[in-house]
Amino acid sequence: MKLKVISGICLLLAIFLYSCQSEDELEFSRYYSAGNVIYQSKCMNCHGKNGEGLSALIPPLTDSVYLKVHKDSLSCFIKYGLKGKITLANKTFEGEMPANDFAPIEIAEVLTYVTNSFGNKMGTITSQHVGDDLQKCK
């Protein structure tokens, strides 16, 4: 009897955990594949098919450390553009990225794509997270 209860609870727990995880995974792949489409049409010309950038003109999207450190600013970069000196991938860039008229969900999607491609692995950047970050843009 006891054993049955325990195994029942375990089973429930397992199902719960499993469905939870797959819910997350589902969300991730939804964001990721939508982000891929946005990346191809809005970012790839500059940043390249493999996020390689262009010499010292356009920075690559392969510097995981830079992306992690600036995680909370990335939404602002995409929405309002970016200008001025930045240093990443052992190089200094002083270019200008144009602004994008994106909804928070689109920003979330493209950022989820970028931060989980080209050797980056940062997990889902949710539309909620983007909304919060956009409040803090300078």
Binding site: L54, I58, P98
Partner: peptide, 15 residues
Amino acid sequence: TTCPSICPIMHRNML
């Protein structure tokens, strides 16, 4: 030089 659309692709390829 300030072309936002196709020039980066062109010059990546021209390289």
